[in-house]
Design a binder for these strands. Structure first.
Lengths: 141, 141
DNA sequence: ATTGCAAGTGCAATGCATTCGCATTTATAA
DNA sequence: TTATAAATGCGAATGCATTGCACTTGCAAT
């Protein structure tokens, strides 16, 4: 499971007034079981493996609805596709391994603090932010 | 001019073996005179004001060629469109004012250093990175 | 100055991810 | 059980960006 969360995505959807249909149940299960940052096509592939016949437009619409409710997070890395992950308890940023495409999460309180400080210095308050480090494995490490 | 640079974009193009056509000259002038982060449509609009009849596909192709040569930088903020700026001497990051859409550049050596340090800790080396702070003006400041 | 040709351009067509219109089905509250 | 708003399937439409092809042009070699 992606993150140890008290409440399942399904329950959280119910509490947000979303209907739990057969397909939605499967989509939510797939999301809950995803540790990575799949795009819609990949999600559709995983859903179809469990329950064939779900239209990809349904996956798109469901992702939009969930993101609207803040139940999932939407990312767009350099390949331009929209990718999703269940909303994390705590904000984190991402490494993207440019050689493998793999996405790794990390968190740095120092960086978070520095961002706040810089924004304040400019007279801004941060609404959200995005930090992506495109990296490769260091040789000999 | 966007950044005080010794050499004009036109000269840099010549040195990279790119032909300076009539349209390209105009496109490069527009780029050089841009202080913001225009997308292709906006660039096309500015170019057309000087020299009508330049096809937007030409702007797209020119941007790709320039980016290939590292003469301009390509960005993609949350609206998903590709935006461009003349390649800066020194790397910087961006505030995006969510209320106005305005893009403001900033630079922080501390953040740059922290990123390196974190990447190293994970066994990575940074190829490139992207830090975008979506902000709004603070009230009463 | 002339010429040859690779590079650049216009235009329309195409690609690709995502959204939408509309008819049909379904979850849920009454 | 029923009413109805929400969800779905399907194909068409959208938006941004790229490409194929015929035509033009910059520029290096003559």
């Amino acid at each position: 499971m992606s993150s140890s969360r008290q409440e399942s995505l399904i329950d959280r959807c119910k509490h947000h007034g979303l209907r739990i249909t057969g397909q939605r149940r499967v989509i939510l299960e797939v999301l809950d079981a995803s540790d990575d940052h799949p795009d819609v096509e990949e999600l559709h592939r995983r859903v179809s493996a469990i329950e064939p016949g779900v239209n990809i437009a349904t996956v798109y619409r469901t992702m939009n609805k969930l993101a609207e409710q803040g139940l999932i997070e939407r990312h767009q890395f350099d390949d331009g596709r929209l990718r999703y992950e269940p909303a994390p308890e705590e904000h984190h940023d991402h490494f993207i391994n440019v050689e493998t495409g793999e996405v790794i999460e990390f968190r740095s309180d120092e960086i978070e603090d520095l961002q706040e400080e810089i924004a304040r210095k400019y007279g801004f308050e941060i609404v959200s932010h995005k930090l992506e480090l495109y990296v490769r494995r260091r040789k000999g490490h």
